[in-house]
Design a binder for these strands. Structure first.
Length: 423
DNA sequence: GACTTAATAT
DNA sequence: TATATTAAGT
């Protein structure tokens, strides 16, 4: 059975499963071929030097049916972890454990084993939170930790599993997955490591062909060709392309007939509209000001250049007025480096680059799913509806704390869940 | 195979 | 929302 179909399984099936499984078993929504693996309820190593806090946390966790192994002493905890790291799903470590503090624990665990670590502390100094986050803490819990937070601790295990699975097997090589499943799988993969935007950029580079940009220069060349061939009504893509390529001064790069056809489609559409009812838009006036000498590079990747400065190409000009007059460009500049887009302006209202925006949307979807995910039996006394109704900020114990504004520390989305993956 | 149009993705 | 890409129809 494939990964994604299982991920998407709805309640009915899972309920059935739950009857088949023992009480303390949780079926994980990840299968390796037909061999399903289920784990016993999530196993947590809890480390806190304060006996009261330790006891309280342990009780709470047990209440939510986690299996807890508690330690007052950091050294003992690490020793235990070294021995049974493969039997543990999550580590919850108090920042102020004297012999091994949170940071040291994060370092050691990060180096020696591949476990998600949640740091907790009675205080929430910026420095403490920052450091923990930097060192790969999945979450930072401020004591007293609320039930709601304990209830959703499973998410870190879930995420870890997903990310491990993603790294270890390349979905495209897996024969069992059809294209749809691969797509879904990759979506999940991106979501599961939402803190790593660079990765998803790189992913896109690998699979998708670069999107070309019609620069002013290119467009003028195009327009010149169209005119030469008898106007929009006469000119056809192939000839336009030939015409454009004939122009020695300007390198049209890897421009294809399809590119031209697409551009022509838009061009025709636009010129038709213009000749009917002409309403001068803001964009029009920008184009009216357009000048022939503005030099821009095509984003069609040229063999020798993978780097270029691009300016967003304005919409089509009014046909009659397009050729002359200096142009005022829209100010959204961005670089492309190997087809990665980086906005260079720090202006507030810049649009997202596409992939970033896209990713955000996924992220939001996933955040919602996390509460309601049916494939996991939540070790929770709350209903799924309750969880869904919970505001995300509930995950930080003191969201309104004057000392600690989660948004200040965490990347987009981190205030809800971890976006930093340890490896 | 080329062109146009429509749908889809970014 | 604009516009580039992809698919489908002629």
């Amino acid at each position: 059975m494939s990964v994604s179909s299982n991920l998407l399984k709805e309640n009915s099936r899972d309920l059935l499963r739950e009857e088949e499984l023992g009480d303390d078993e949780v079926e994980f929504p990840i299968n390796d071929e037909d061999e399903e693996f289920s784990i016993t309820s999530i196993r947590i190593v809890l480390v806190d030097s304060d006996p009261k806090s330790l006891c309280l946390m342990k009780n709470l966790m047990t209440q939510f049916s986690y299996q807890v192994r508690d330690f007052k002493n950091g050294g003992e905890a690490i020793a235990f972890l070294m021995m049974s790291k493969h039997e543990i799903d999550l580590v919850v470590w108090d920042f102020h454990v004297p012999d091994i503090n949170g940071l040291e624990a994060l370092k050691t665990i990060g180096k020696e084993m591949d476990l998600p670590v949640v740091i907790m502390s009675h205080e929430h100094e910026k420095k403490t939170v920052m450091e923990s986050t930097k060192h790969g803490s999945c979450n930072f819990l401020v004591k007293p930790v609320s039930k709601e937070i304990i209830a959703v601790l499973w998410q870190h295990v879930y995420r870890k599993r997903i990310s491990i699975y993603s790294v270890e097997s390349d979905p495209e090589e897996s024969l069992g997955l059809d294209q749809d499943n691969i797509d879904l799988y990759q979506t999940n993969k991106e979501e599961s490591s939402s803190g790593e935007q660079n990765n998803s950029y790189q992913k896109e580079d690998k699979n998708k062909k670069p999107r070309m940009t019609w620069t002013n220069e290119l467009h003028q060349l195009f327009e010149k060709a169209v005119e030469k061939l008898g106007g929009v009504g006469q000119a056809v893509p192939k000839q336009i392309l030939k015409c454009m390529q004939a122009e020695k001064e300007i390198d049209v790069g890897g421009l294809t007939r399809n590119n031209v056809a697409s551009h022509l489609q838009k061009y025709r559409l636009n010129s038709g509209k213009k000749s009917c009812v002409h309403q001068e838009t803001r964009e029009d006036s920008e184009w009216l000001n357009a000048g022939p000498n503005t030099t821009l590079t095509a984003s069609i990747p040229l063999p020798n250049s993978s780097f270029g400065l691009h300016t967003r190409v304005p919409p089509f000009p009014d046909v009659q007025n397009a050729t002359n007059a200096p142009m005022q460009y829209p100010s959204t500049n961005y670089f492309t480096v190997n087809n990665n887009h980086f906005i260079t302006s720090s202006l507030a209202n810049l649009p997202y680059t596409d992939s970033f925006h896209h990713q955000q949307q996924h992220q939001q979807q996933f955040q919602h799913q996390q509460y309601t995910h049916s494939s996991l039996r939540l070790p929770s006394v709350r209903t799924k509806q309750d969880l869904a109704a919970m505001d995300n900020t509930d995950l930080i114990s003191n969201p309104n704390s004057p000392l600690f504004d989660s948004r200040e520390f965490f990347l987009e989305g981190f205030s809800n869940f971890d976006t930093i993956n340890r490896h």
